[in-house]
Design a protein around this nucleic acid. Structure first.
Length: 700
DNA sequence: CTGGGCATCT
DNA sequence: AGATGCC
């Protein structure tokens, strides 16, 4: 529908999404569609990597129990082997094979139950988090796959490496025997293959996991090519071989994005192979699927995929479910719900966000359509219950949630009649950080996109001095809630160590000044609104109160912000080092590799890479009052109070205010009560998600 | 003898 | 709320 104009301009969004900063778009070109062609030939292509961990669950179990490495191992969920190690595969076991079948084929098969996903989930987030420490553009796909847009890393490295011999490919090149010959023709993909190799090595050395990678110019191709050599290998796909890999797919079902249902509908149109779809008239396809889906499908068949790598962040919902042969009594249902809610509440508590919606999903037994047809009902979670989850009164929370869930159950099932359920799922969604939006917080909330300024190092060598610095500071960062405030912390490592080579992914460009902030991962300067909201209300108040006029003697933003109310009154910043939750953050790197400061640094200061905001953040010194010409204060902010805030906070606030004006303009047509449109919400969510992400890869 | 998650779109 | 898709 909205695509009518670009029916023939299927590349349009790619122009926006796949930009690279070496090919700056002029402001005019961004808004003017007709100017596209004026930009000349195709824009620089992206470099996308798809990572796919080998038999992920099995690897996790083998790490937990190394003895399992030498035996054929299968991970069992109910009656299914969901995955197995390569020893087992050599003996004929495959994924998604029934247990009985597997045991027939391989009587020695060792089975480990894998229904509890806790360990897999934790390890999964460690991987994502590790990748994110190199570049924030990481998108998860399930627990064992990640997409990464390394275009910027490549561009940076390209600028630095003038050496010709670096233009060779690491790993395989799809359908090529001697890659080196044409490597020079694809320097960016070639560099991408080196980066992919380094990242795989990092995953291996830090987390002990092996996996495959695919390097290509879009997500679809990267994913398709990553599996061509398994396990623990990588493959690059050159543009001239796109049709090879697409045409080589055995059936439309192999195209990611074409599921069972879509394949069936396509088959009804007489389409079976990828070629069939490529050649099928678009108009006919539109009749069946509608404009956007039709175009998307056709593009997929052609290997065209302009969808951006969308940083995943923390999950938007947490759910827990169990399936069974039969559940037919209300009492059993109640017990199951209780059990599911208990574990879910625990997980939610660790997450730290407050769920505002509870959903109950069931699957009814039905001879025919057994595995589809789920039904669900949802309801708001009263605030006082949600609070208990956060505060850790888990038992109380569960007690209050169970009746809620049972109400939902009775909406779904008439318990007077006979019923037969085969699955129950409970889900928390509408996850929000605690605290009502104070005026200021709501400012933040609107566009707290995450300003990670990720500093990346291709390989890390060296030094302890930084390590020390980090260590001393990290305690202050232990609360996930504090992370946002560390953003502007001076990059501990980089400062002291110039030789710390390659800084990828951080755009130095102070940015094209376009108004188009949706196009890229344009991340506003560092504030973490969420963090503010996480602070106890009295502290928030105090922070904003005109009565609060003490100056803050601390220049470390990490310490400063959080401490403002307390420290200035009560404690010196140092004392914070030994207070409370030190371990949270510290343990992470320790568990991984205590000598590796890179991880540490990135954790504690997920300082935005893509801080296009480029404006150099003021790192020390206090800003003086902003002149009103520069930035108007919101009415509720006392300039004097403002002046007492730590410099980075001042900076952040001003940036927010400045942006607020722009956003208000942009959103003036929107409903006031719901000014966060999907796109905004997405952007806004990412900021907090990134912070919260840390929790997902906590120490085990 | 078909898991237990998650996301997006409508 | 459901459908669909992915692992």
């Amino acid at each position: 529908m909205d695509k009518s104009e670009d029916e023939m301009e299927e590349d349009e969004s790619e122009w926006k999404n796949s930009f690279v900063d070496s090919v700056p778009l002029s402001p005019a070109s961004v808004s003017g569609t007709s100017l596209k062609k004026a930009l000349g030939p195709a824009p620089a292509n992206r470099v996308i990597v798809h990572f796919d961990l080998d038999c992920f669950y099995a690897q996790v179990e083998m790490i937990r129990n190394p003895a399992l490495r030498e035996v054929p191992l299968g991970i069992q969920q109910k009656y299914i082997i969901v995955t197995c190690n390569y020893v087992a595969r050599e003996l004929g076991v495959t994924k998604l094979m029934s247990v009985t079948h597997a045991k027939e084929k391989c009587p020695q098969l060792v089975l480990v139950k894998g229904e509890d996903l806790t360990h897999y989930r934790e390890m999964s987030y460690k991987v994502t988090e590790l990748l994110m420490s190199y570049c924030p553009l990481v998108e998860r796909l399930g627990f064992d796959e990640n997409f990464m847009d390394i275009t910027k890393m490549v561009e940076t490295r390209l600028a630095e490496t003038a050496e010709s011999n670096s233009f060779s490919f690491k790993g395989h090149v799809y359908n090529r025997l001697s890659a080196d010959v044409e490597a020079i023709d694809h320097p960016r993909l070639a560099l991408g293959s080196h980066i992919a190799a380094e990242l795989r090595e990092a995953i291996h050395s830090k987390l002990g996991l092996t996996g495959c990678a695919g390097i290509a110019t879009n997500k679809l191709l990267a994913k398709l090519v990553s599996g061509t050599f398994k396990p623990n290998q990588q493959t690059s796909l050159l543009p001239e071989n796109v049709s090879d890999i697409m045409d080589g797919l055995n059936g439309l079902r192999k195209v990611p994005g074409v599921g069972h249902q879509t394949a069936k509908r396509l088959q009804a149109l007489g389409l079976v192979s990828v070629k069939d779809l490529q050649l099928f008239p678009l108009n006919d396809l539109v009749r069946e699927f509608g404009g956007p889906s039709a175009q998307r499908l056709k593009n997929l068949a052609l290997g065209v995929d302009d969808s951006p790598v969308t940083p995943t962040g923390a999950p938007q919902s947490l759910s827990d479910e169990d399936s069974f042969k039969k559940m037919s009594s209300t009492k059993d249902v109640l017990e199951k719900i209780q059990e599911l809610l208990s574990s879910l509440v625990e997980r939610m508590h660790k997450d730290g966000r407050q769920p505002h919606t509870l959903r109950l999903t069931i699957r009814r037994y039905s001879a025919t359509n057994k595995w589809f047809s789920r039904e669900s009902r949802q309801s708001p979670i009263p605030n006082h219950i949600g609070q208990k989850i956060i505060s850790g009164s888990s038992d109380d929370a569960v007690v209050q949630l169970v009746p809620l869930a049972m109400k939902l159950f009775h909406k779904l099932v008439d318990s007077n009649a006979a019923f037969h359920l085969t699955l129950i799922n409970v889900c928390f969604s509408n996850l929000q950080t605690r605290g009502a939006a104070t005026t200021i917080a709501s400012f933040f909330a609107q566009h707290s996109t995450s300003p990670r300024k990720t500093q990346i190092f291709s390989t890390q060598r060296q030094d302890d001095p930084s390590q020390k610095t980090v260590t001393t500071k990290s305690p202050c960062c232990s609360e996930a809630a504090l992370h946002g405030f560390k953003r502007e912390q001076r990059p501990v490592v980089a400062v002291e160590d110039p030789p710390l080579q390659t800084v990828f992914c951080n755009t130095m460009r102070s940015d094209f000044d376009e108004t188009d902030d949706t196009v890229t991962n344009r991340l506003p300067p560092n504030v973490d609104p969420e963090v503010f909201m996480l602070l106890p209300e009295d502290i928030q108040k105090e922070l904003l109160s005109p009565a609060y006029t003490n100056s803050v003697p601390c220049t470390s933003s990490t310490v400063t912000v959080v401490d403002v109310p307390h420290i200035t009154k009560n404690k010196p910043p140092q004392s914070f080092a030994d207070s409370q939750n030190i371990e949270d953050i510290k343990e992470v790197p320790d568990k991984l590799d205590s000598s590796d400061r890179l991880v540490v640094v990135n954790h504690q200061s997920p300082v935005g890479t893509s801080a296009f905001s480029g404006e150099n953040v003021m790192r020390e010194g206090r800003l003086s009052y902003p002149r009103s010409s520069d930035c108007e204060f919101p009415g509720n902010v006392d300039p004097k109070v403002f002046s007492e805030l730590p410099p980075d906070v001042q900076k952040e606030l001003m940036s927010e205010w400045k942006q607020q004006k722009a956003v208000l303009k942009a959103t003036s047509l929107r409903k006031p009560g719901r000014s966060l449109m999907p796109k905004d919400r997405k952007a806004a969510g990412k900021g907090s998600q990134a912070n919260n992400l840390l929790k997902y890869f906590k120490p085990s």
